[in-house]
């Protein structure tokens, strides 16, 4: 039997039972054969080690790639976290904004004092007197109702002004704005005050840009320096 064949079969663990008998017979009697076998066994180990070293290099490369991928993934998570934080901050600011407006409204809003005060004796005038009485005593819902019933309301912008403010004082801002918008072109006693209250009510319903425009108009027309300064402060708050 070919010795080389036997050695190959041996190192690859493929010897048949019959071949094993022959192989061990030769191995026990032939020193050269023993050396040959040792050389091939060593060779097999060496080839495996050579391959192992090649794979080690490759696997170390994969390790670097893996680490880079994980790092990249961490950066992506970090970026997502940052975006989420920014969005949260923006949302919080958005939520905070109304409370800024609430604060502004609380600080700056005051129903206009009744310096109109008509004192008339007939029934029509009585209705107005009752309306202003209610207005002055802070019963704005009643005042609004009485102003609305006044026959003069359609032709008297001053009455409409107080009617709108009565509505505003009871939280009916949209209605108040629509009445004030109807009279803001009129040249009458409370012309510049109309802009102030339009600004206030628009701010209350979240129409910041309209409110800013109203306060700018107020600054343009109002001779009241103190309130003009306040109007600028309000604009600053609304611009935030």
């Amino acid at each position: 039997m070919d010795k080389d064949y036997l050695i190959d079969q041996y190192v690859n663990q493929k010897l048949s039972e019959e071949e094993k008998v022959v192989f061990h017979e030769i191995l026990n009697t032939d020193e050269d054969f023993q050396e040959e076998v040792e050389m091939y066994v060593d060779l097999q180990k060496v080839v495996r080690e050579d391959e192992r070293q090649r794979l080690q290099t490759k696997v170390k490369e994969w390790s670097k790639i893996h680490r880079r991928r994980r790092r990249r993934r961490s950066y992506i998570y970090l970026a997502i976290l940052m975006v989420a934080s920014i969005v949260s901050i923006i949302l919080v600011l958005k939520l905070v904004q109304p409370s800024d407006i609430e604060g502004m409204y609380a600080n700056y809003f005051q129903v206009p004092a009744n310096d109109y005060s008509p004192v008339l004796r007939n029934s029509r005038e009585e209705l107005q007197t009752r309306a202003f009485t209610a207005y002055e005593s802070g019963e704005y819902a009643l005042a609004a109702e009485l102003f609305e019933q006044s026959p003069e309301i359609e032709v008297n912008p001053s009455l409409q002004f107080f009617y709108a403010n009565s509505l505003g004082a009871t939280g009916q801002f949209e209605s108040a704005v629509s009445i004030l918008e109807k009279i803001n072109q009129e040249d009458f006693r409370y012309r510049e005050e109309v802009y102030w209250y339009l600004g206030m009510f628009n701010a209350k319903v979240g129409k910041a840009s309209e409110a800013i425009e109203n306060f700018e108009k107020y600054i343009e027309f109002s001779p009241d320096e103190e309130k003009t300064v306040q109007a600028r402060e309000i604009i600053n708050i609304l611009e935030r």
Binding site: Y40, L43, Q44, V46, V47, D50
Partner: peptide, 24 residues
């Protein structure tokens, strides 16, 4: 075996390949 590994590494790539097919 380390010495043998040195000699094995010095072989031509075609030789390494065929020995790898046989013994690995």
């Amino acid at each position: 075996q380390k010495l043998l590994h040195q000699y094995f590494s010095a072989l031509q790539p075609s030789c390494k390949k065929v020995l790898k097919l046989f013994y690995y």
